[in-house]
Every structure is written in structure tokens, then in C-alpha cells.
Amino acid sequence: MKNLTAAERVAIARHPQRPNITDYIDGLFTDFFEMKGDRLCREDPAILGGVALYHDRPVTVIGTRKGKTAEESIRCNFGMPGPEGYRKALRLMRQAEKFRRPVFTFVDTSGAYPGLEAEARGQGEAIARNLYEMSRLTVPVITVITGEGNSGGALALAVADRVLMLENAVYAILSPEGFASILWKDAARHEEACGLMKLTAPDLLALGVTDDLIPEPEGGAHLAPARTIREVDRALSRHLAALLKESGPNLAAKRYLKFRKMGVSQSKEAAPPREEP
């Protein structure tokens, strides 16, 4: 496993038989009750959410949904949510706050949907609002990046106390294809982009963007879904137990500081001298 290239991990992360949100809900929770709709205009099947029991404790579960069959994929827009999906997620998170239950989010999306309707209904505003509100929730929030986590569309569910990542999952500013197309005007150079983007679980753990790495079976999660889900369960239990010891305001304060520290900049004195025109 250690010798996989970033591009190989991207391929595993996108494998059609990789466990998806439905598998995680079936394998980790009992008594799941799905809640639909953003209460504003529609239901977005690209995000699945509801309330369930996790080891007998009520929790809120939210995840992006990619289908496994063609029909399913079309129905949930290939896991690319619109603003309604993010607003539903926010509605569920506010409910979690009200009923004092932890929030688990599962992220596997190639990004927020770049469509005309999505723009007309404020895709940018919906994502921004989630970042803003998630930063101040006073219940534990744990995110698991299970497949690909691309762009603001992934981050909108990932302002969490703990961001965990499956070993072969990837998390990035956008897809390697999009990255290559923006930077070099050539989407075909996506493999080269993979190597530069620092999008693998070990890279992101080293950068401090994620908090833990969940091991996968040799060859990838799709080869042994049950074992993968057991590993996720073990990680979730451990992190949740630690977070449940904290007070609500403490959780919010620590979450704030965690994201506050992200990113490196420098002051001019430390920088190499600038040439004057």
C-alpha cells in the first residue's frame, strides 16, 4: 500500500464499487431515519442525511451520495450537490445542535454542481453559510473523507473537530483534471497534477489539514468493504469518545483555532529580496 502513487490513489478513491454513504449507514448505524428537503425549495438527493443510533447514541448523519448503478448515479447527480443539498445539511446540523447530538459527515464528491440552476439559487452562498455555521456548532462534529473530497463542495461538510481520511481517499482544492485545466489549460495533464497537489491522506495528515488516517485493506476499500467499515467504526468511536469529554463552547473554540491556524504565509523581511522595477 505504501508505494501507491497519488494518481493510483485517485483511481482507487473513484472506484465505482467503493463503499458509499449507504454502505456506511448500513454498516455503522442502526435505526436510521432519513430526513429530506431544505424547507426552502426542494430535496437534493446528492446529499443524504438523517438521524440514527451510533452504538445506541442518537447522532446526526450527513453524507454526499454517489450511486453505484447508472440509474442511481443519475438520480443523485453523481454526488454533486446543489445549494439545496447544502442547505438541507445545515438544517440537519442545526437540529443536531438543538437536540445536542454529535454530527457525522461522510464526504465523497467530485465537487459542488457547476450548473445554471445551482448558480441561480446561490451555490456560493450556501457553501459559505455552512462554513460559517459549522465553525460555531457546540456539538462534536466528525468528518470522514471516504472517497474524493473536492473543492468548496467538500469543505461545506467538513468544518469539523476531527477530519478523518481513508487511506486511499483524496482531498483537494478541485479535481486533478480541473487543476490541470486551470493551471496549464490541459486537463490531460491530470496525472502530473496529482503528483503536485498533495491530495493523499498521508500528505494531508503531514500538512495538518486532517487529523487521522484510517487504514484500508490491501488494494483498496472496495475489495473488503466490511473490513473497511470496521476500521471506520474503530476510528469514529475513538474520536467521538474524546470529543464527548469536552464542553460545547470548548469544542467550538478549539475547532475555531484549528482552522484559524491553517495556511502558511510569511513576512516580507523573511522573504527573498524583491527586485524593483
Partner: peptide
């Protein structure tokens, strides 16, 4: 986003939004 800073550019969205909430 600033492509050359990858995921750390993405994290600025969370950072600035959280600061605005406060």
C-alpha cells in the same frame, strides 16, 4: 483559489468564514 497552494487555499474559506462568525 490559488492553485499553487492547493488544499491550504481551500482552508482559507473555512478560516475567514469562521472569523466572520465570531
Amino acid at each position: 483559489a490559488r492553485m499553487q497552494e492547493g488544499i491550504l487555499s481551500l482552508m482559507q474559506m473555512a478560516k475567514t468564514s469562521a472569523a466572520l462568525a465570531r
